[in-house]
Amino acid sequence: MRSPLPKILGSLAIGSALVLTGCGGSSEASDGSSTDDDVIRYATLPLSDDPNAEVPVDEIVSLLEEYTGKEVIVTEVPNYSAVIEAVRAGHEDIGLMSGFPSALAVNTGEVDSLVAWPGSDEPASTCLVLDGSPIESLDDITPETTIAFADAASSSGFFMPTHMLSEAGLVAGEDFEELFSGGHDRSFMALDEGQADVACTSPIFTEMAGESSPMFPFEEGETRSIGESIGMPVSMSALTNPDMSDAKREVLLDAVPKLFSEENRDALGIYMDSMPEGIEPIIEPDDELFQPFVDIASVADVDISDLG
Score class of each variant (00 low, 15 high):
R2I: 06
R2L: 11
S3E: 15
S3M: 14
K7H: 14
C23H: 08
G24I: 10
S34V: 15
T35N: 11
I40M: 07
P51F: 15
N52Q: 13
V57Y: 14
D58Q: 12
E59L: 09
V61D: 10
V72A: 05
I73A: 13
E76M: 14
S81H: 05
S81D: 07
A82T: 07
S98E: 00
F100K: 02
A116M: 04
W117C: 00
P118H: 03
T126G: 01
L128S: 04
G132E: 10
E136W: 02
A148R: 01
A150V: 03
A153D: 04
T162S: 12
E167D: 08
A168K: 09
L170G: 10
E178W: 08
F180E: 09
R186N: 10
S187N: 05
M189H: 12
D197K: 11
V198Q: 04
V198W: 02
T201F: 01
T206E: 00
M215W: 04
M215I: 05
P217L: 12
E219F: 07
E219K: 08
G221Q: 05
G227M: 00
G231Y: 00
M232W: 05
V234R: 14
S235D: 01
A238L: 06
L239I: 11
M244D: 08
S245G: 08
D246Y: 06
A247S: 15
N264F: 03
N264I: 04
A267H: 12
E277P: 02
I296E: 04
S298L: 08
V299E: 13
S305G: 14
S305R: 15
